[in-house]
Amino acid sequence: MSAKRIVSMCPIEELLVLIGGRWKPVILWWLMSTEKPFRFKILRQSMPRISQKVLTQQLRELERDGLVKREMFPEMPVRVEYSLTAFGRKLRPVLEELDSWAREYLL
């Protein structure tokens, strides 16, 4: 697990260590929107307000924490695809509930 992990008696605090921040839930939402993996460029185009540097950093953290799988293909140019792991897919109900709440109270 993450180097950022902390010992806590609060499960919400532990969850926020994994998916906290402005972009991680958005990245996870896009990755769960389809069964097909996303290439970096497509993810970046789907979220035009995120910088390339931040997207790279967030994907690395999500991969490190076991939520996202990064697959590199030995082609020229190199093709890299991102998808959710089985662990990451377990977040679907959580993100769907957040989406429902945001649509009802924020839009």
Rank of each mutant, 00 (worst) to 15 (best):
F38L: 04
E61A: 12
W30Y: 12
R49A: 13
L43G: 09
V54F: 04
Q57I: 04
T34H: 05
Q57N: 12
E61L: 15
L31H: 06
F40G: 07
L59N: 05
P37L: 06
R49Q: 14
K53L: 08
W30E: 12
S46A: 15
S51E: 02
K41N: 06
V54M: 15
P37Y: 02
Q57D: 12
S33P: 03
R60C: 07
R39L: 01
P37R: 04
Q58P: 01
K36G: 00
K41H: 09
K36L: 08
S33R: 14
S51Q: 06
I50M: 14
L43C: 10
E35Q: 11
S46T: 09
W30G: 00
M47C: 07
E35V: 03
R44D: 01
M47L: 15
T56N: 02
W30A: 07
L55M: 15
E35W: 05
K53R: 12
M32N: 11
F40L: 06
F40A: 01
T56R: 05
V54A: 14
L31G: 11
L31C: 08
T34A: 14
E35L: 09
P37V: 05
R49Y: 13
K36W: 00
L31W: 04
P48K: 07
K36M: 08
L59E: 01
Q52T: 10
M47R: 01
M32W: 08
L43Y: 03
P37G: 03
T34E: 04
S51D: 03
Q52A: 08
R39T: 02
I50T: 07
L43N: 06
K53A: 09
F40I: 01
Q57G: 07
V54R: 09
K41T: 12
L59D: 02
W30T: 02
Q58H: 13
F38D: 09
L31I: 04
R60A: 13
L31R: 07
W30R: 12
P48Y: 10
Q57E: 13
F40N: 01
K53G: 00
E61N: 11
P37D: 03
M32C: 10
K53S: 05
L55G: 13
V54D: 10
R44L: 15
I50S: 12
M32Q: 14
R39P: 10
Q58L: 09
